[in-house]
Write a protein that binds this DNA or RNA. Structure first.
Lengths: 136, 136
DNA sequence: AACCAAATGTTATATTTTATAACATAAAAA
DNA sequence: TTTTTATGTTATAAAATATAACATTTGGTT
């Protein structure tokens, strides 16, 4: 994990600050947590502490809600994006490896990965219908 | 003012977080404020809010105190460094101007500024003796 | 040694913030 | 129309913060 990723995931902000930064109410922020869209850390005295990543997510949530997406939709979007990020990371690592040492076997693996990547968003990982509102 | 400077001066952190990040007690942090080494913002309900800059300063203070510097010394160091930063900014702006349009007059001004800069730390702005412990 | 001031600790009290939970409500979905 | 979803509102308890006063420690002075 890189340094900036560590900093971005460091639990720093109490809910009051997060309210200001996101212009969400405490009720909303806790509700989104209840629906597992974020999982802030806790102090040893049970106070929630949010990271920069959490705040980014909350801003994304706010945006999506404005666009009419519900909790389930947002959750799906997050898992898809998470998967994408992992795939892209994997692709990049593969690319680097290829640049160092390109074997037939690696090439096959790489192509398979990129194929999977290209096929994203056509099926899988989202149950059909849920996201149909995006494609009309 | 640049974007990063704005972010670094944004009041974000309540004192509890600052205590963790700096490993200073609330008493110490407030004491340094009492001596005008930092001036955190206040919420409309009188809670202190510290910026990243404040936190950096507190870490510097901690370091200097470990080295035996007292409040007055730290204050002097801060004003000197502040002045330095302003001078450097000024120098840079002059440099840029020169690159665009170098007149004899500007050249004279620039040289005078750089001369001043070189002579820093020999006298002035610190009363002799206060900082002598640094130069033995 | 006795003293003094600087830096920090400790304690008490009042206010503010946060957590949890329950009930209320408006808008969207079924 | 009835349900569900997202959010508001209210009450209560616990934690965090502000202020101020007094206590303690420590290094330097006399």
């Amino acid at each position: 994990m890189t340094g900036s990723e560590i900093r971005r995931s460091m639990p720093l902000f109490p809910i009051g600050i997060v309210m200001q930064l996101t212009e969400l109410t405490a009720r909303q922020i806790r509700y989104y947590e209840e629906h597992q869209l974020i999982t802030p850390a806790r102090t040893d005295t049970n106070r929630r502490l949010y990271s920069l990543n959490d705040i980014d997510k909350l801003l994304e949530i706010k945006d999506l809600i404005d666009q009419g997406v519900n909790m389930a939709g947002i959750k799906q979007l997050f898992t898809v994006k998470e998967q994408q990020a992992l795939d892209e990371n994997e692709l990049q690592k593969q690319d680097e490896k290829v640049r160092r040492d390109l074997s037939d076997d690696d090439l096959r693996k790489l192509l398979r990965k990129e194929f999977m990547q290209a096929g994203r968003f056509t099926r899988s990982s989202m149950r059909q219908g849920d996201m149909s509102r995006f494609f009309h």
